[in-house]
């Protein structure tokens, strides 16, 4: 797995969006989404305009729509929540196909879906066009505390190694005929989580040793 370059979260390319400085992209994303969130629901044309802006950026980036669409599954819980809103919200009710629904609830669900979808799409576009290393450097330029950026750097570096360990542990469980089906199996899963913690902690200590062996003294130098 994994693309030949960068991380698997990153869709390799050479578009102007890929080349744009990461700190500007992050600042742009935050600014754009603050505007989206602050826009009243009644201003429907504005949302159409936001969607067009994002659409143009996607086109410029050259990231395939299918790639973004696949990764949008992360929005599923929001869809479920939005579907519940018309039933629980208060206010005047309307009949839709024989079911009485809250009108403000319907409007709010539509608004939430619109804003959340714009947010997911915009964030995915950032992730797809920005190498994680550049993203971290960008955060540092945005004055995110360097210790926090360092921690994120370690997380990005070891993400695949730790998730691989997790996968191997599951393979080992299943090879011995274990498949988790109901809560009676939780103790086994819990022990796997515990084992993963111990392995992670020990790796953290070994990495720290490898760092101090090369003169690291706790200060973040870049």
């Amino acid at each position: 797995m994994g693309a030949p370059h960068g991380h698997r979260l990153h869709f390799h390319g050479h578009s102007p969006l890929h080349r744009a400085p990461a700190h500007l992209k992050v600042a742009g994303l935050v600014g754009f989404m603050l505007v989206v969130v602050a826009t009243p629901l009644a201003w429907a044309p504005s949302f159409a305009a936001y969607a067009v802006v994002l659409g143009v950026l996607v086109a410029v980036s050259g990231v395939p729509v299918a790639y973004l669409a696949r990764r949008m599954v992360v929005e599923t819980p929001v869809l479920v929540f939005a579907a519940v809103l018309p039933f629980v919200a208060s206010g005047p009710e309307v009949e839709v196909a024989g079911v009485s629904l809250s009108e403000p609830g319907l409007l709010a669900a539509a608004g939430l879906l619109t804003k959340a979808t714009l947010g997911v799409l915009a964030s995915l576009l950032l992730a797809a066009t920005t190498d994680p290393r550049d993203l971290l450097a960008g955060l540092e330029r945005l004055r995110v505390p360097s210790q926090l950026v360092q921690i994120m750097g370690f997380m990005v570096r070891y993400l695949e190694i730790v998730t691989d360990e997790l996968r191997r542990m599951r393979t080992a469980r299943e090879s011995r005929g274990f498949t988790a089906r109901d809560p009676r199996h939780w103790p086994v899963l819990g022990r796997s989580v515990g084992a993963l913690f111990i392995r992670s902690f020990e790796r953290g200590e070994r990495v720290h040793l490898a760092m101090i062996a090369r003169g690291y003294d706790g200060s973040a130098r870049r």
């Binding site: 750097g153 070891y158 913690f197 990495v207 690291y216």
Partner: peptide, 13 residues
């Protein structure tokens, strides 16, 4: 001074 590597890998965990 173990904060960065340990917190990073525990975050991954």
């Amino acid at each position: 001074d173990r904060v960065a590597p340990l917190a990073g890998i525990i975050a991954t965990f």
